[in-house]
Structure formats: structure tokens, C-alpha cells
Amino acid sequence: MRFITIIILFLSCYFTLSLNASEVRLKDLVEFDGVRGNDLVGYGLVVGLNGTGDGLRNAPFTEEMMSNILERLGVNVTGEQFRPKNVAAVLVTATLPPFSRAGSKIDITVSAIGDAKSLLGGTLIMTPLNAADGDIYAVAQGSVIAGGISAEGDAARVVHGVPTSGIVPSGGRIEREVDFSFQDLTSIRLALRSPDFSTASKIEAVINQLVGGRVALMLDAGTVEIDLEAGDFKSPAHLLSRIENLTVEPEQKAQVVVDQRSGTIVMGRDVRISRVAVAQGNLTLTIEEAPLVVQPSPFSEGTTVVVPRTRATVAEDQGRGLAELPDSTSLSDVIAGLNALGISPIDMIDILKSIKAAGALHAEFIVQ
């Protein structure tokens, strides 16, 4: 009896996991209003390169910026001409995370904008980072980790990866916070990453069920609004901590996505095909050049002539004739029907296009 009880519990857990396998957490489906990052950008210099920096004749802005930095450090270079090869001008980019505070560190990305060959081994000099409003929110500095290598000789050059771009881990320090008070919000909007009316309705229902009242309202296919004044919440942060791990099963449009370059085909689970018959065959065209050399008779005054000869043949692969694809009620039926043709993924893309043109493929067809 105890053994039977263990089996029943095991089967219950199995079916529970199977039913919840397609459910997704709310935090993975939506973006919370106000919880967002901000892009930062700056212009700086990378020094300490091993002769792989900008050619200052082709990048005069590098020399000008180097002169300005030296002037601020008390070095007078007015009227002097210097041609260092270990300096490169770069654009510095970063993202200011939401709720970041002054003193926190962020990762930095640097990219050469001149004719530098590599940023490997360089050091980014103190660079202010500005947001879209023009204010400085962070300052970046540190050793650059380049993502590639470059080797050059007298007659050849080998480049692996992208040595003109790199990162500075924790190289940016936040100096200014974004003026945003999350605590003072009276309502929060949840923006669905993939707008869908059915999914938005499920999110509304699961939030209201948790709270025990009607505080969530679906505004459209991509927005669910939560009225913070309608419920007894300590703060917006406490509410989000309760609802962000709620799970719902999102609804998706039936789509077929194909990549012609790699032959990749991705189908959604709701793809359906009406009953249709398909025949597919290949034509192989072979062209062979066999020129004939004609020489004159001995002791004659003629010249040797090359007579062109071309042999062209066309061979048709009869394939498997007509293959019937029945009415499909599931994704496995669609796959089984297409596999019955016994063709490669590249040819299957063309067949799917033809089925869509015939009106038998009931899904959005996306070609990349």
C-alpha cells in the first residue's frame, strides 16, 4: 500500500510539472513602468597601445584631444608636433541600470573611431559619460580587454575577432542618480513584450486573484495597469515583489520563421496546414567544355585552330511524386507530413512558401 502511495505521488508531481512546463513568470513577459535603464555615451582616449594606435595624420582629432588632456595636466604642448602611435580615439558606451546609486560601478564598452589596428593592452583615460539630456552621469576609466587579436607582417596580415572593440569590466563609476521616485507612483503599467489580448487578460486575472480585489485592468493588448490606491500595499516595490513571480501561459500567434542563409526553420505550436498535395523535384544542369584542336596538314601554310565544343545536359530527379499532407491538428502532424517528402531543409523552405501561397498554411510566414 505504501508503494502504491509513492507511485501516486510521483505521478501527481509529474503531471503537475507537465501542466506548468509552458507557464512563464510575469517578470519574463512584461516590462514594469519606470523600471528601465538609460544609455550613456562619451568620447575618450585609449593609451598604452603597442604601436597599433591611430595614425595622427588620418585622425587629427586624436592629436587635438591628446593636446587638450596634456594642457589640463599642466604640460604645455603648444606649437609642438608629436606623432605617438600608442594612442587611439574611442567612443565609450554604457547603460545606466535602473535604481542605480552614486558610487556603483557599471561595465563599459569602447570602440575605436579612427584607424587604430587594435586596442589590446590599452588603458582608457578618464572619460565622462553623458545621457540624452546632456548631463554627466558616470565617469569611465580602466584597462581595456579587447575581443580579438591582430598580427601583421611585411606582406600579410591576420585578424581574428574584432581587436578594435573591447570592454572595461566595472570601469564606470556612477556620479549622478536619475531623478525618479518609484515610491510616489499611484499606478503601475505592465508593458507586454509580445502584445496579445489573451495573454494580457490572463495577467489581469492572476494579479486580481492574488491580491483579492480588482486592482489590475487590461487597457489594451500590450498594457495592464495596476491601481496602487485601490489596494492596501506598503509600497509599489512590495507589490512588484509579490506579482513578478506569478506564472501565466502566454498565447502566441502561429508563425513560421525561416532563415534562407542557414536553412533554419522554426514553427510555433499553433501552426496548422490544410489538406494539400505537394510534388517536389530537382533539375540538375551540367555544362562541359571540350574544345577541339584542329591542326593544318604537314608542310602546309595553315594555322592551328581551336574549335569550341560545349556539351550541356539536363537531368531531372523524379523525387517521390505527389505527397499528400493531411489536415494537421498539431505541430507534430505538420512535421510528420513535411518529413514524408524526404527533402532537405533548404527545399522545405520553398515548399512552405508554395503552401502559404496556396492558402493552405495557416500561420504568419516570416523570412529572414
Rank of each mutant, 00 (worst) to 15 (best):
T199S: 04
P296H: 02
E175Q: 06
E80K: 08
I226W: 11
I273A: 00
G161N: 06
R36Y: 09
V139L: 08
D135T: 14
N76G: 01
N20E: 15
S194R: 12
V293P: 07
A277F: 11
P296I: 04
Q255C: 00
E63Y: 14
V314P: 12
V215I: 02
V158I: 09
I335W: 14
R2I: 15
R242Q: 02
R189A: 02
V278S: 05
I69R: 05
S18L: 11
I351L: 12
G171Y: 00
T247G: 10
T329D: 13
R320C: 08
E152K: 12
L40M: 08
F182W: 06
P98E: 06
Q318F: 12
L11T: 06
S67Q: 13
L210W: 11
A191N: 14
G48A: 04
H160F: 15
S187P: 05
P236I: 09
T52M: 14
I7C: 01
I8C: 06
G42D: 14
L185W: 06
A191F: 15
V159L: 05
R36F: 07
G281H: 09
Q295M: 10
K253S: 15
A21T: 10
A59H: 15
L40A: 08
L228E: 06
A102R: 13
G51Q: 07
V30F: 02
N245E: 13
T186E: 10
S235W: 14
S235Y: 11
V168P: 04
Y43K: 10
G48E: 07
S241K: 12
T123Q: 03
A140N: 08
R189Q: 10
F233M: 07
L246I: 03
I6L: 09
A205S: 12
L352Y: 13
A59K: 14
V256Q: 01
S330E: 05
S181G: 03
S150H: 14
I273E: 03
T303Q: 05
G53D: 12
N208T: 01
G153I: 07
N130C: 12
T62G: 03
V211F: 00
T304K: 01
D184T: 13
F10H: 03
K202Y: 05
I355N: 03
T123I: 06
I355L: 00
G147K: 09
V178C: 02
F233D: 11
L11P: 01
A191C: 08
I355E: 05
V168H: 08
T186K: 06
G153K: 07
L19A: 09
D54Q: 02
L192I: 03
V139R: 05
F82T: 13
I8W: 11
M348W: 04
D259W: 03
N58M: 12
V110I: 09
C13A: 14
L292N: 15
T109A: 08
D196R: 02
E244H: 07
A59W: 14
I351W: 14
L17D: 01
T284H: 14
F10E: 08
R214M: 07
T286H: 10
T95H: 12
T286C: 04
P291E: 11
F197W: 05
F32P: 08
L292T: 15
T313I: 11
T95N: 13
V215G: 00
D115M: 03
S100M: 08
V92Y: 05
A205R: 15
Q255L: 11
L185F: 03
F32G: 02
S118R: 02
G337D: 14
E152T: 15
V139T: 12
D33P: 10
T284V: 13
A360I: 03
P128C: 01
D333Q: 11
R72P: 02
